[in-house]
């Protein structure tokens, strides 16, 4: 009994403020308890780190060809993952290739997240004719399959990394705008937005304080799931010669140039495909895990 009274007194004097777990803390806790998401999150992190530190990790020069060492199998002395059709070290090329592939996978989604997200939030928040104008314009892009659209835009603009990123950004803006618009429309109708307006707040303040926090989660999750699509599409563009140009190492392009070697050394020819597969799968499962962790009704 004495113990409790002492505790109570100290609580009173110290004025301890009861603090509780916010939304993001709850999400983080749920992720920590989900081994699958943690594992694929670690894989994604590993892939990103290996791409960033490729110059330090790569055992050989990814551009250095050798006529003697062409298409060596896995485990060759000095070339752990063998060599490609011009005798370049596969491991080094895969590590360096990750840089371009990830860049082309992430950047378009990032740009589209900013542009499409902003368009969608504006459309959803303002509603009416503005919504009509923005969303119907987005719908035009939906008329074309995404792969075809990316190829068409890239083809029209010409090959090159910049053009590939631009075309992929254009492909991803409509779906992100659509997701942003639908969640914003839901949030806008809630009483707390009305209450904020009744407080005298302007639209920008309301969007910043009340809409963004409740909308960004869903948009962000959707964007993460688009990264895997973007990596595959970017590789596809490079495969078709519309993205990265040789001799730059890029997984899609490597897949293309190794195509002829598939009967000679199928394992080597499959390696870039395996890299694309693992990366996009990891991004996909990570975003899936995040989605379920963020689906907390609090």
């Amino acid at each position: 009994m004495t113990d409790t009274t002492i505790n109570d007194a100290s609580v009173d004097t110290a004025q301890v403020v009861v603090s509780s777990r916010g939304y993001w803390a709850t999400v983080a806790r749920r992720v920590r308890r989900d081994p699958v998401t943690l594992f694929f999150g670690a894989v994604v992190l590993l892939i990103i780190l290996s791409a960033v530190f490729a110059p330090l990790l790569a055992p050989a020069d990814p551009y250095k060809a050798s006529m003697i060492l062409r298409l060596k199998p896995l485990g060759t002395e000095g070339h752990l993952l063998g060599t490609d059709e011009t005798g370049r070290d596969m491991l080094s090329r895969l590590l360096y290739g990750g840089r371009l592939s990830l860049f082309m996978g992430i950047m378009p989604v990032l740009y589209a997240l900013v542009i499409g997200g902003a368009l969608g939030i504006i459309a959803g928040f303002v509603g009416g004719a503005t919504n009509m104008a923005i969303m119907r314009t987005m719908d035009v892009f939906y008329a074309f399959p995404s792969v075809l659209l990316a190829i068409a835009i890239s083809g029209a603009l010409g090959a090159g990394i910049g053009n590939a990123v631009l075309s992929l950004t254009l492909v991803f803006i409509p779906p992100l705008a659509r997701v942003a618009e639908s969640v914003t429309t839901q949030v806008r109708k809630l009483d707390y937005v009305e209450a904020a307006r009744a407080s005298g707040a302007g639209s920008l303040t309301i969007i910043r304080v009340h809409v963004l926090a409740n909308v960004l989660g869903s948009i962000f999750i959707y964007a993460t799931s688009l990264i895997s699509v973007s990596i595959i599409l970017a590789s596809g563009l490079s495969f078709l010669g519309l993205g990265v140009k040789p001799p730059e190492p890029e997984w899609g392009l490597m897949l293309n140039t190794l195509r002829q070697a598939i009967y000679v050394n199928p394992t080597i020819a499959a390696l870039p495909g395996v890299a694309i597969f693992i990366t996009s799968l990891s991004f996909n499962l990570l975003s899936d895990g995040l989605r379920s962790a963020m689906d907390v009704r609090i």
Partner: peptide
């Protein structure tokens, strides 16, 4: 009518801040 992502403090202080 309460923003689920804001603490009670932020919710009440929002109007005066505006």
């Amino acid at each position: 009518s309460l923003n689920p992502r804001l603490t009670i403090e932020d919710t009440i202080a929002f109007g005066p801040k505006v």
